[in-house]
Measured scan of single mutants.
Amino acid sequence: MDVRRLKVNELREELQRRGLDTRGLKAELAERLQAALEAEEP
């Protein structure tokens, strides 16, 4: 998933699904989601 191409509301939805903080600027949201995705990979 390319988090840079997601819209802010899409980033927030993905973060919320993972129980993560949904507050912040788009860059912060993308960074948070990217870190979560990398942590999920085996």
Rank of each mutant, 00 (worst) to 15 (best):
D21K: 06
A39T: 11
M1H: 00
E40R: 08
R17P: 01
E38R: 08
D21S: 08
G24D: 02
R23Y: 14
R5D: 06
E31P: 14
L29A: 05
A39L: 11
R18M: 12
L25D: 15
E40Q: 07
L15W: 00
A36M: 04
G19R: 06
E28M: 10
L33I: 01
L29N: 02
Q16I: 15
E40S: 12
K26L: 09
K7A: 09
M1I: 05
R17W: 05
L15K: 02
E10H: 05
R23G: 14
N9Y: 13
R17M: 14
A36R: 07
G19F: 02
L6V: 02
L6N: 04
A39E: 13
R18F: 02
E40M: 10
R5L: 07
L20W: 04
Q16P: 01
L11C: 01
D2Y: 00
R18G: 02
R32Y: 00
T22W: 09
K26C: 07
K7W: 01
A27S: 14
G24N: 00
A27T: 10
N9W: 05
D2K: 10
V8L: 10
L20T: 02
L15A: 02
E28P: 03
Q16C: 15
E41V: 12
E31Y: 00
K26N: 09
L29T: 04
Q34C: 10
R32N: 05
E28K: 04
L29V: 05
L33E: 04
R4M: 15
E28S: 05
E10D: 10
L20S: 04
Q34L: 07
L37I: 06
E31I: 10
R32V: 01
T22K: 06
T22M: 07
K7S: 13
E28V: 09
D2V: 05
L20I: 03
E13C: 00
A35K: 13
Q34K: 14
E13Y: 08
L33K: 02
V3D: 08
E13W: 06
R23F: 08
R12H: 11
E40W: 04
K26S: 08
L33N: 00
K26G: 10
R5T: 13
E31C: 13
R17S: 12
A35E: 11
K7M: 10
Q34I: 07
Q34W: 06
L37D: 01
P42Q: 10
N9P: 12
G24P: 01
A36V: 11
G19K: 04
A35G: 12
K7G: 10
R23N: 14
V8K: 03
N9S: 12
L15V: 02
Q16Y: 11
E41T: 10
Q34R: 11
D2I: 07
R4H: 15
K26F: 04
A30P: 03
E31M: 15
Q34E: 14
Q16L: 11
A27G: 13
K26P: 13
R32G: 02
A27Y: 14
R18N: 01
N9A: 10
L6C: 00
G19V: 01
E10T: 05
R32D: 02
A27Q: 11
R5N: 14
G24W: 00
T22R: 05
A30S: 12
D2C: 03
R17L: 13
L37H: 07
A35I: 06
L33Y: 14
R32A: 03
A30C: 09
T22E: 12
E40F: 04
E28C: 07
R18A: 02
Q34S: 13
A30I: 15
R12S: 08
K7I: 06
A36N: 05
R12T: 12
R23C: 13
L6H: 02
E41K: 13
Q34A: 08
A39F: 01
R32K: 07
V3P: 13
L29G: 04
E10F: 11
P42S: 08
L25F: 04
E38D: 11
Q34D: 11
V8C: 01
E31D: 06
K7Q: 11
E10V: 04
R5K: 09
L15G: 01
E14Q: 05
A39V: 08
D21Y: 01
A30E: 14
L37F: 07
E14I: 05
N9K: 08
L20Y: 02
E28H: 01
L11N: 03
E28I: 07
L37P: 05
R23K: 15
V8I: 10
R23E: 14
L6I: 05
E28F: 00
E38M: 14
Q16W: 07
R12L: 08
V3H: 01
L25I: 15
A27M: 15
D2T: 12
G24I: 00
D21Q: 14
N9Q: 12
A39I: 11
R18I: 05
K7C: 07
R32M: 02
L33M: 08
L11Q: 01
L33H: 03
D2N: 06
L15E: 02
R18H: 11
T22N: 12
A39Y: 07
R23T: 14
T22F: 07
A27V: 10
V3E: 11
R23L: 08
G19S: 08
L25N: 14
E10L: 02
E38V: 08
E14V: 02
V8E: 15
E31F: 04
R17T: 13
R4N: 12
R12I: 08
M1F: 08
V3W: 08
R32P: 02
D2L: 03
T22D: 15
E10W: 01
A27H: 15
M1L: 04
L6W: 05
R5Q: 15
Q16E: 14
R18K: 07
Q34N: 09
A36T: 08
D2W: 03
G24C: 00
N9G: 11
E14S: 07
A39Q: 13
G19Q: 09
L25P: 15
P42D: 14
